[in-house]
Design a protein around this nucleic acid. Structure first.
Lengths: 148, 148
DNA sequence: TATTGTTATACTCTATAACTATA
DNA sequence: TATAGTTATAGAGTATAACAATA
C-alpha cells in the first residue's frame, strides 16, 4: 500500500478501506453502500419524503427514485402516502429493513469498541477528544470550501 | 447530519466527507477520484504496468484500461512500451500529470497540518499514536474478514 | 407559479467473459 | 500453456432536463 505520510493520508486510507469493505460485506445481501446509506438515514431520522432524502444524502431527487425503487423491490422500504401532501410519499422501513439497520448499529458499536481497545488506555481520552476535534475541523474546512 | 455515536460512526462520516468533497474538488479539472487514485499510485511508486496498477487499486485489469484511456485523453499519463515485455505497457506520468500529483501532495500536507492544529497541543502525541493504532487495527479487521 | 416525483438520456466506475498478441 | 491488455456486454450510481400531478 501507499505510505501513510500525514494525517490526511491516514484518513484517505481509512476512507478507502471503509468504502471498499463495507461494499463487499453488503453485496451478499443484495445491498450497496448507496442503498444502505439511505436505510441508515431513515433508521436515524425516521420516515421522510424523497426530497428530504435527497437533501440528507446530498444527491439529486432522481437518484433517490432509483435507490428507493431498488429497496422497495428488495422489500426493505415502502412508499407510504404522505398524510397531507398528495404529491409526496413517505419512505418507511419495513420489518426486514429495520432488522438490517438494527444489526448494523450493533455491529458498529462492536467494531468501535474493538478499534478503541487498540488505542493504549492512557491515550484513549486524548484520542477521542482529538478525533472529535478533527471531525469538526474537517466539517469546517468543507463548509468553507477550503478542501484541496 | 447523523449523530456521531461511536468511533465507527465518526470514521464513516470522515470517509463520506472525504469521498464526496475530493470528488467535487477534482471535477473542474475533468478528474474523478478513481482517476486521481491511479495518478497517485504512480506518483508514489513510479511507472508500472496496468496489471500492477490493477493490483494496487484492487480493481480488474479491464477497469484500469478505461481509467488509463481517459487519462491519456486528458494528457496526464502516457503508455510507454515495456523495456523487456512487448505485451505490456508502462503507464507514466506526463509533466501535466506530475504537476497535479505534486500539487495534491502539497495540499495534503497543508490540510494535515491544519487538521492536527485543531487537536489540543497536549493531546497531539496521544492522538497520533491512537490514530496509527486504529488504522492498524482496521487493516487487521479487514484482513481477518471481520468487517461487519 | 412552485414543488414532488418520474420519464428520458448520458457518463463513469465496476465486473465477467471471450479474444489477440506475446512469453 | 500462461500472461498483458483489449473488445463486448451488463449493472449500479450519478447528473441534467423535461414533464405530470398537486400545492
Amino acid at each position: 500500500m501507499l505510505p501513510d505520510v500525514t494525517v490526511f493520508d491516514q484518513i484517505l486510507r481509512i476512507a478507502a478501506l471503509v468504502e471498499r469493505d463495507t461494499a463487499r460485506s453488503l453485496a451478499p445481501a443484495g445491498l450497496t453502500t448507496a442503498r444502505m446509506h439511505l436505510l441508515w438515514v431513515i433508521h436515524h431520522a425516521g420516515p421522510m419524503t424523497q426530497q428530504k432524502l435527497a437533501a440528507a444524502l446530498a444527491v439529486t431527487p432522481r437518484n433517490v427514485t432509483g435507490l428507493v425503487d431498488a429497496l422497495v423491490e428488495s422489500g426493505l422500504v415502502t412508499r407510504e402516502p404522505h398524510p397531507t401532501d398528495r404529491r409526496a410519499v413517505e419512505v418507511t422501513l419495513t420489518a426486514a429493513g429495520n432488522r438490517i439497520t438494527s444489526a448494523a448499529a450493533r455491529d458498529h458499536a462492536s467494531v468501535a469498541e474493538d478499534l478503541l481497545s487498540a488505542v493504549p488506555a492512557a491515550d484513549r481520552a486524548a484520542f477521542e477528544r482529538g478525533l472529535a476535534a478533527v471531525v469538526d475541523r474537517l466539517d469546517a474546512l468543507v463548509a468553507e470550501g477550503r478542501w484541496p
